[in-house]
Amino acid sequence: MSVLIVIPARYASTRYPGKPLVELTGVTGEKKTLIQRSWEAAQAVSGVDRVVVATDDERIRALSEGFGAEVVMTSEACRNGTERCAEAAETLGGGFEIVVNLQGDAPLTPAWFIEDLVAGLRANDWAELATPVLRCEGAMLKSLHEDRMHGRVGGTTAVFGAGNRGLYFSKEVIPYAGKDYAPEAPTPVFHHVGVYAYRPGILADYATWPIGPLETLEGLEQLRFLENGRAVLCVEVEARGRQFWELNNPSDVPRIEAMMAEMNLA
């Protein structure tokens, strides 16, 4: 059964216009755009049949095709990455068992995050989509609190219940766990990794639903599934020594480049 990875990318981001074209410098000094590094991360995932970039912007299309990516042009009306993935999958004619949304602002996503995600969805028939969560150590929890303290939109946290069924996702740090943790100590807070694996039916349904109040307040697309009573599987993944961060703000560029240097990533 086939797996499609879609990398949704738009130029007109509200918080960070032109973000997919931002350059990140690796340990060798080579500069590559955010969209290229995200595409290269997708290429490293095993068990995937096809990888495409989905965009509505000609600049992103031209650059992506220049480094060898397949591009699917989508409508400017897409309100988030999930809607863009749904349109791209439909444009490609469907026929995929699982569609993965690897958002174009997460170039440090390890291949095993996506491999574990797909395996988790296949193993749990009750789940309609799956998304990875990573237990925060003290240092990451501190970074999340510092972002909130300075008014920055940082990482998202996730809360889940029995069977790892998703209960809520927030840009606030939830659940309340205090702040007194050693840098490498495990905490009760889980960082949501912005990757999704959908069954085709739920992905097609998503674009037909109106945006609800929770999605509006938090600005988190996955809340639309919860607001419509759909079953979300949170798959706990392991960092295996890898650092992970999404590029949400201009201030995240040096942070991610520092992580790349520490991990010796070109």
Rank of each mutant, 00 (worst) to 15 (best):
T131W: 02
H191V: 09
A182P: 01
A123Q: 12
C85M: 11
C78A: 06
Y198K: 03
L144Y: 08
I60M: 06
P188S: 12
R84K: 12
T55F: 06
F96E: 12
I98M: 04
F96D: 10
D57E: 11
P250T: 01
D56G: 15
I202N: 05
E83A: 11
P254E: 07
E146T: 09
I211A: 12
D147I: 03
G68N: 04
G163T: 06
E30A: 12
L214Y: 10
C85S: 12
D56H: 14
V99T: 10
A197G: 09
A261T: 12
I98A: 05
R122L: 13
V99S: 03
P17S: 00
L217W: 05
A44G: 07
R50T: 04
Y16L: 07
Y181P: 09
T82Q: 08
E58A: 15
R230Y: 10
S46Q: 04
L214H: 12
V159D: 00
A123T: 01
V133C: 05
G166R: 04
T55D: 14
L108D: 11
G161I: 00
A12P: 01
W39C: 05
E23T: 07
G26H: 03
A139P: 05
P254G: 00
R199K: 15
P183R: 12
R61K: 15
N124S: 13
F225L: 15
D125H: 13
L102K: 09
Y196W: 04
H150G: 00
L121N: 11
A42Q: 09
V159T: 03
P186A: 03
W39H: 14
T33Q: 04
S170A: 11
Q43E: 15
V193C: 10
G29A: 10
L134D: 06
L121V: 09
R37M: 14
M1P: 11
A119W: 01
E40I: 03
N124E: 11
Q222V: 15
